[in-house]
Simulated assay, not measured.
Amino acid sequence: MSMVLAISAMTGYLYLTGHEAPPPPEGMPMWGPVPVVPFLAVTGAVLLISLLFAWYLSRPLRHLSWAMDRFAEGRLDTRVGPLMSGRRDEIADLAHDFDRMAARIEQLAQANRALMHDISHELRSPLTRLQAAIGLLQQDPAQAVAMIERIMLESERLDMLIEELLTLHRLDAGPNGVPQQRIDVIELLQAIADDADFEARASQRTLCLDASGSFVIVAHGELVYRAFENVIRNALKFSPPGSRIEVDARIAEGGRMLVTTVQDRGPGVPAGMLQAIFEPFTRVEGSESVSGTGLGLAIARRAMLLHGGTVEATLREGGGLVVTLALPVRN
């Protein structure tokens, strides 16, 4: 292309100045004023460079198309980054974005499969005990009272588990359809603490709430209630008789954040499980005898995240666990 432009410019110059073009070398084929051989050589070089450039651009796009087809077929482990051959352009950035998306979707799919496995296991246990109780009742009607009590207990456990699963599903699905209202979280904490302390005293435990003032937000009241209640009742369940559960609520960041800590003197958890305890059906070794669905802390974390907050656990000095819930005011 540059040669064509140069020839055109030279021809125009000669035409405007009235000079005649110098005669071509003897024996050189011409196409008008243009020498054929150099013209063909330059044209071929331009075509070759264009083809190489088109191949360079289209090859990673073909890799991306291949990866998307495999991903659509359900092969969630497909990654395209290693096929970019060290590229550092926008297409390579797109490939890395695809890999991050694929990794996240694969992680979520694996978590859902694990959750379904756990749900089936958790449902099977009370159903098995129900079937055993019905079988014993049929074999020996004299045990009717004891077996009916067992059936009622397992029915209540199933009802609680299904209710927790529905709550977890609502949280995962998002806030659509869940009403919001103005609530005073300090007042809500006081109501939860009063109920929990009443139950705690029956087992020689005490619960103390240190909170003052008010913290009014617009939120999904039922979900916020469940978040704080689950954390407080979890501390109550794992605290030994004669111990004290301390709940402290402080308004921070100029009234824009409520930070609540729940401290117990229970057995605590291994340091490596401080994050895992907020996953569904996670149980710490040695806690099998403690009743519960294994969903309470998972619901608490999802409810806090839904409202822009956080919840985390740390080990308490001297034994026990400290769970900190941070709930912001959102416009």
Rank of each mutant, 00 (worst) to 15 (best):
D194H: 10
I232M: 15
V216W: 09
E199Q: 07
S212A: 11
G177R: 00
L236W: 11
D194C: 08
G242I: 07
L236Y: 07
V231C: 04
D194N: 05
L189F: 01
E222R: 12
C208N: 12
V218K: 04
A235F: 03
R226V: 02
P175C: 02
R205F: 14
Q190N: 15
C208S: 08
S239Q: 02
Q181R: 03
V216I: 04
E222K: 13
E229V: 02
Q190R: 15
S212M: 09
G174F: 12
A193Y: 03
V216K: 10
R226W: 00
N176P: 01
V231L: 06
D197I: 05
Q190I: 09
C208V: 11
A227F: 08
P240Q: 09
G213D: 08
L207A: 10
R201L: 14
A227N: 04
V178H: 02
A211D: 15
E199R: 15
G213C: 05
V218N: 02
G213K: 05
E222S: 15
D195T: 11
S203I: 12
V231R: 11
A227C: 08
G174L: 10
A196M: 03
S212H: 15
R205Y: 05
L209A: 01
T206W: 09
R226H: 00
V185N: 02
D184P: 04
K237T: 04
R201M: 15
T206Q: 14
F198C: 02
S239P: 00
I192W: 00
F215D: 12
A202M: 06
H220V: 05
A193Q: 13
V185R: 00
